[in-house]
């Protein structure tokens, strides 16, 4: 939605653009009451400020209310996404591993499907899936795997070098172990 229009809606409800959802609800209740009931504030201008006009305002107010409500919820979602992303990044800084499932979570938070990502990164969709599910036995040669992980995580705005180092370390450990067992 264009900012100018949104600003008009906020003006109509007489609230600040940083208003929270509960503030919006309270402002809406108050303003609805002002224009739908009689009070000592409305009676003196009853003749000039007709009922019809006030009803028109009420309609505009209710439209503004739903538009701002949607806007605030969308804003909240976006913020949550970013903060969760930050949380994961923090975890990572605390040298907690970047597992396939964390990569998957970050991708999902950004609302991206594997197919979309595959088209953008030119990595086959099944390969992306294998990385997320940590299907070690299906992995290609180390060098290629590293390039894929780097490109994939870079796209998700994760520190790709760190992610690839961490991921490869665990993969190599698993490979060594499974070789030994064999």
């Amino acid at each position: 939605m264009c900012d100018k229009k949104l600003k008009k809606y906020y003006e109509l409800l007489e609230i600040n653009v940083n208003a929270t959802l509960s503030e919006l609800n309270r402002a809406y209740d108050r303003i609805k009451k002002i224009y739908s009931t009689e009070s000592i504030a409305t009676i003196p201008i009853d003749n000039e400020f007709s009922k019809k006009e006030r009803e028109k305002i009420l309609k505009r107010i209710s439209k503004a209310y739903s538009k701002i409500g949607t806007h605030i919820i969308e804003k909240k979602k976006k913020k949550k996404l970013i903060s969760e992303h930050d949380k994961i990044s923090e975890k990572k800084e605390g040298s907690i591993t970047i597992s396939g499932s964390i990569i998957q979570q970050i991708r999902e938070m950004q609302g991206l499907s594997l197919l979309e990502l595959s088209k953008i990164t030119k990595i086959p969709e099944y390969m992306l899936k294998d990385i997320e599910l940590e299907n070690y036995e299906k992995f290609p040669a180390d060098d290629l795997l590293r390039i894929h992980i780097t490109n994939y995580t870079k796209f998700l705005s994760i520190d790709s070098k760190e992610a690839a180092d961490d991921y490869m370390k665990r993969y190599k450990k698993w490979k060594k172990k499974s070789k030994k067992e064999a």
Binding site: E14, R30, A41, I45, E48, F49
Partner: peptide, 14 residues
């Protein structure tokens, strides 16, 4: 106090 908010709103919108 609510009357104050009503007066304000009505003046703005009227």
């Amino acid at each position: 106090i609510e009357i104050g908010f009503s007066i304000k709103s009505l003046l703005i919108k009227y």
